[in-house]
Design a protein around this nucleic acid. Structure first.
Lengths: 339, 339
DNA sequence: CCAGAGTACTACAACGTTTTCGTGTTCATA
DNA sequence: TATGAACACGAAAACGTTGTAGTACTCTGG
């Protein structure tokens, strides 16, 4: 790296002190008009910019917020990041993105790295492994260090920090309620393994809606998909049972799309013989045939809310009195349901 | 922010000098064994971590690489970022992501912000507006400042820096060549406006393949889609012409998916009556019905290559002799073509 | 003619770290 | 009893910036 121009160099050039240059560039009245103009001209010519690191060190703030997410090649997470970036930028902050790749070790490392002074606060969605292991020491450490933290989507209740979550229970409830109202009798649920909270919550909403309609909850039509195994094979089981369900709620878009594609292969008509609703996180639902009705999650909003909560904490330095923002998902009806 | 623990505070605690503490923590032989142990214990207890900013300032390097992309909610770009992050992390670097949102002003601002000392180098894909305006002063400035730059995908040839591009010409050629070999007679092209280089290059490959097969190039079946207007309406024109094309090459997944969905609405059989190939950037192609054959772009690889080129520049401080890595896309055959 | 006020600048500390170059002991050796 | 290692630690500069607290001047008014 070619040495960038600094106050010191400008000072030497004009044979004045560093403070003089600093003040001249800030248009301080303490400095003579002509000297000021000459210094400014010189600085502009050499494209002088105050070194950000020096400022960060001096001001004890970086105007950077760290984001740690399980993955980025994922419509939901990238949408959230988009929202974070948008709000942060408007407030003069930059965003540093780190990926845990669903690994606990990587998450710990990322958080440790970011809380070494390079960010003012963190926005995190937990990795799968972390939730599986139930191991949150790294968060306690950063909180003890005084770093503000905002958790979103995949959160852990016991942590004392602001949170932004989707009303997953409500979203699933809405979907199931809708299906039942449209005449569905037997609704299968494609959900995740137990340790994924969002899966649990959506299951909760599913069950709540069933109870509300006095429909029995049947464990055998609740499928807990294991993401590490073959998805299609597991989902196909829904279609192989006697007394096949007439509707499916899938806790994500991929499961829903697979279900749709299997239905298609088996010549089952959607939505006439089978209704499908997924939780949307991407573009897939729009382009399947028929397009999938789904519960939309407002990722961008989640991002802006998380950023707002974090930046508030950073700027007010307020401790305690933590909030949990709940974003309500909406039902987007397309053609995989009888509307 | 609660004041974090620093060398100075530890020094005061043990009534020794700052240097002593620093050396003790680095296990220097200069320091007595027992003092070393006591200092280390104290530091560990208080979760001491060297302040990154101070180190960055002292060492004149940040171990951060800046990434500026037009958008992040986009499978291709997020995949590239994933690749960048992966490689960078292995080399001990962190990644700062900024979005231009296709705006020239935002791109200029981002680059100016990042080149104030907070990163060691930049990886950029140009915003649409920048390409439209042909305005690259901001890059000249950062290059003059000595910042290494790697451009990917949406590049500009005249800039003196490393580049990573997809062989778009080759990809389009492969696709068209394949279609022609499978018996297609009249292949429409759904491409972008002229100022998008990738659109131009893919068109070039399209035309080259046609010429190679002695097929006439017809301007009226080359559709330059305007992303700011209604896509479906524009794409529907392909189906409204007399002597409808029997194959379509779309320069991205969305155009292809729209074409497929319109074909479906019109009762046109894919692939029997119409073959479609898109350039893939996402998951859509997998879940359409039928799944779309497409030219896959290896975004992850592009990311790792870009990161590798950049980190090499950073660490060797070599100027000049710039490389352009060309990544060859592959044809992924699914069911929208006669295979 | 001198106090006081302005003018135009400089010195220095501070942010947190590393590293080079001391410096003052102690201890063994000639 | 000097000499000089060996040991254990400290002082200070450097990275680049800002802001406070000076410090020389000059000018003005009584």
């Amino acid at each position: 790296m070619k040495q960038r121009i600094t106050l010191k160099k400008i000072a030497k050039e004009f044979d004045v002190s560093i403070s003089t240059v600093s003040k001249a560039l800030k248009d301080s009245p303490e400095i003579g008009e002509d000297l000021k103009e000459r210094i400014k001209g010189y600085a502009a010519f050499y494209n002088y910019k105050p070194n950000s690191l020096a400022l960060q060190l001096r001001n004890q703030k970086t105007l950077v917020i760290g984001v740690v997410v399980p993955e980025i090649v994922h419509h939901f997470f990238s949408t959230v990041i988009d929202g974070i970036e948008d709000f942060a930028n408007k407030k003069g902050y930059n965003v540093m993105v780190c990926l845990s790749n669903e690994s606990h070790a990587k998450e710990v490392q990322n958080i440790s790295l970011l809380t070494n002074g390079s960010v003012d606060g963190l926005i995190v969605s937990l990795s799968r492994e972390t939730m599986e292991m139930n191991s949150y020491e790294h968060f306690n450490r950063m909180l003890a260090d005084g770093y503000p933290l905002v958790l979103f989507d995949r959160i852990i209740d016991s942590l004392e920090c602001d949170k932004v979550i989707i009303d997953d229970v409500g979203g699933a409830y809405k979907a199931v309620d809708f299906l039942l109202n449209k005449g569905a009798k037997r609704i299968a649920l494609l959900t995740t393994q137990d340790y994924i909270t969002v899966g649990q919550l959506r299951k909760e909403g599913y069950e709540r809606a069933l109870r509300h309609h006095w429909v029995d909850i049947e464990d055998k039509i609740i499928f807990k998909i294991d993401d590490s195994k073959d998805l299609k094979e597991q989902i196909a089981k829904v279609f192989e049972m006697e007394n096949r369900p007439d509707a499916i709620l899938a806790v994500n878009e991929i499961y829903a799309a697979h279900a749709l594609s299997i239905a298609h292969e088996k010549g089952i008509n959607v939505p006439e013989e089978l209704s499908i609703i997924g939780f949307t996180s991407g573009l897939i639902s729009e382009f399947t045939n028929p397009p999938l009705s789904s519960v939309v999650q407002h990722g961008f909003l989640i991002g802006t809310q998380a950023a707002e909560l974090l930046i508030n904490r950073i700027e007010t330095e307020k401790k305690g009195d933590f909030q949990t923002e709940v974003i309500s998902p909406d039902l987007k009806l397309r053609q995989s349901t009888k509307n």
